[in-house]
């Protein structure tokens, strides 16, 4: 199992694996042969992002004059493809008067940050460090 993972990882450039892992949650682990981990990330991270949207969370815009909002926007972008799908569908407007608005923001932001962490892990696997 481990030999297979390393063999597969050696065939791919770590940057490509990390980019794939960012764009599609779990894709980096699937690419490097860690199928069960990849499938779990593929299910859990978009589900967390979608939950955030469903409970009135907001996808923050890039506003450089408001550094905290810009950082939140970067974290939102961390989820990859689901972010672009949500933007294309017009989701993520946020409802600031909703009781779960802040919870939704937290779900969306943390889903993005977790996906970035998963992408870093995929990078390490592809580079043979794990």
């Amino acid at each position: 199992m481990r030999a297979t993972t390393i063999d597969r990882a050696q065939g791919a450039h770590p940057l490509l694996v990390a980019l794939a892992a960012w764009f599609v949650p779990g894709a980096g682990h699937l690419w490097t042969g860690q199928r069960s981990k990849g499938l779990i990330f593929l299910l859990v991270l978009p589900a967390m992002f979608a939950t955030g949207l469903a409970i009135d969370g907001r996808i923050f815009p890039f506003e450089p004059q408001q550094p905290l909002v810009a950082l939140a926007a970067l974290a939102d972008l961390g989820i990859g493809l689901p972010y672009f799908i949500a933007r294309a569908m017009g989701a993520g407007a946020g409802a600031v008067l909703s009781v779960s608005y802040e919870h939704g923001n937290t779900f969306i932001i943390v889903a993005g940050l977790l996906n970035l962490l998963v992408a870093c892990d995929a990078w390490d696997i592809a580079a043979g460090k794990k």
Binding site: I40, V44, T51, V110, A111, L117, V118
Partner: peptide, 9 residues
């Protein structure tokens, strides 16, 4: 959600 991701990671 967070526990699952960290545990698997």
């Amino acid at each position: 959600f967070v526990s699952i991701v960290f545990a698997v990671l």
